[in-house]
Amino acid sequence: MPVRRGHVAPQNTFLDTIIRKFEGQSRKFIIANARVENCAVIYCNDGFCELCGYSRAEVMQRPCTCDFLHGPRTQRRAAAQIAQALLGAEERKVEIAFYRKDGSCFLCLVDVVPVKNEDGAVIMFILNFEVVMEKDMVGSPAHDTNHRGPPTSWLAPGRAKTFRLKLPALLALTARESSVRSGGAGGAGAPGAVVVDVDLTPAAPSSESLALDEVTAMDNHVAGLGPAEERRALVGPGSPPRSAPGQLPSPRAHSLNPDASGSSCSLARTRSRESCASVRRASSADDIEAMRAGVLPPPPRHASTGAMHPLRSGLLNSTSDSDLVRYRTISKIPQITLNFVDLKGDPFLASPTSDREIIAPKIKERTHNVTEKVTQVLSLGADVLPEYKLQAPRIHRWTILHYSPFKAVWDWLILLLVIYTAVFTPYSAAFLLKETEEGPPATECGYACQPLAVVDLIVDIMFIVDILINFRTTYVNANEEVVSHPGRIAVHYFKGWFLIDMVAAIPFDLLI
């Protein structure tokens, strides 16, 4: 008679799926529990143990900040960024110097990925580790590398530091407007667009060049630039800015003055950032001319202004700041037409079709709590990747769950009947059967004279019903998954307890 339990259901295979997918890609990662103190490590794979030199037993239950890997060259700011990422709910990448158990130093890129439950609360953290440099290539500990984003994938490793954006290309926007319009339909740009040429040739750093990471940081200074100062900065030398009595002219307006920039070969870094931020506020060169004239017309309804409409929906549905990093990277690809469009465009503009998908598509409701890094690593669709929660398995109709209350009560009843059979069957065979043979035949009273025979008949009927119930009862397979398919249940029961239950259900007393 089957006594099969499996009270692990309803099970959740999400954690096993993450481990299996990460292991298949030869990654070095740990999984931490966000619900406990210090976000203790609950799993670390073999790749991480080989990377740091510690065994799994030495890593388990330690804080996922990996303070046991810190050393003299470990930056405090990087460690603080990892700790801050564990307090938030967004994906974050941090470069930090770690030390192995043998004392060797290596520069590592740590990717902190939160995993949320159905309520939107962070319950786990996945920390992925990628070695960037070994100890002989690690720089000085005073050099802070965590304020910069990861290198873009479309640049060669040897040319990542030679990417320079020439400031004269930004200063000569109005001069290039006529050349853009003359391109017409034969050019790649839309009317009114501004073409910015980027020099990728390796050259020595000069005062006129600005690194790509500095251009990325310009967006942080746009908020500090007032509207009046932006307007004066875009007017140009024809209309000098008016300053109040006793007030000095704005240095932001002076930063885009061609006369002032041409007199000296070098520009201050602050002026460069502010000038680029001011130019980015204009949607095209037409807006710059309109600002000089004193009238700013409404933005025209053409394809170039609607190019950012799908980007707005993608940004609203993005799951991490990696989408913004990807957008900034692609927006700086050289030799393309940049349409400086305000994100607050007309909502009635139709979304044009684009061959290049900048932001990841909208994630469906079932995966809105899973970050983009987890979705990318697992390579699963929205119909396959579940949320991290207890999910009731989908069972067929008329199927009994093996952990249901009805099955528990039924098993206790069958257990009592088995005990009765084990006690009274030998007793009936030894004593009652002998008395029946010696006594007179009682054929007239039937079952009324033999109450134990009636009980034995009921017990046999219950055993037959138990066999039928076992054909529709779920079970737990070797992978700790609840199986509810009727065919698989029948095959599993035939290979197991079916023969024993059938022999126990045969009414031998009635056959004798």
Rank of each mutant, 00 (worst) to 15 (best):
N369C: 12
K21Q: 12
Q61M: 09
A217Y: 06
V3W: 13
A40I: 06
A244F: 01
K166I: 01
A228P: 14
F14R: 11
L380R: 04
A80N: 04
A188K: 05
S272N: 07
G187M: 06
A169N: 15
R35Y: 12
I123L: 13
Q25K: 10
L385Y: 07
S351H: 15
R366F: 13
S179R: 11
D346T: 05
P347F: 04
A290D: 15
A223F: 04
V8C: 08
L349M: 14
L349S: 03
D286E: 14
T375E: 06
P2M: 04
L343I: 10
S313R: 11
S153N: 08
V59Q: 01
S26P: 07
S320M: 15
N339S: 09
V94Y: 01
C105G: 08
T305M: 11
M60S: 01
F348S: 07
A223C: 03
F125G: 11
G149R: 09
L338Y: 15
R328E: 15
L170W: 10
R73H: 05
C49Q: 08
P347E: 11
A350R: 12
K166G: 11
V36E: 13
I126P: 01
E365R: 07
V59C: 04
S263Q: 13
I31R: 01
L87H: 15
E372Q: 12
N45S: 14
L165I: 06
L296N: 06
M60I: 15
F106C: 01
S266I: 07
G192D: 15
E274I: 05
P114I: 01
S178W: 03
I31L: 08
K101T: 01
I42D: 01
N38E: 14
V198M: 05
G53V: 01
G314T: 09
R181E: 06
P2T: 06
G226S: 06
A78E: 10
E50P: 01
I126F: 07
A121H: 10
V8F: 10
S239Q: 14
T17I: 07
H302T: 06
L380Q: 04
V279M: 09
L167M: 15
F348C: 08
F98C: 05
D111A: 06
T270Y: 05
I30K: 01
S322D: 14
P2I: 02
L15K: 01
L167R: 05
V295T: 14
E90C: 08
N317A: 10
G381I: 03
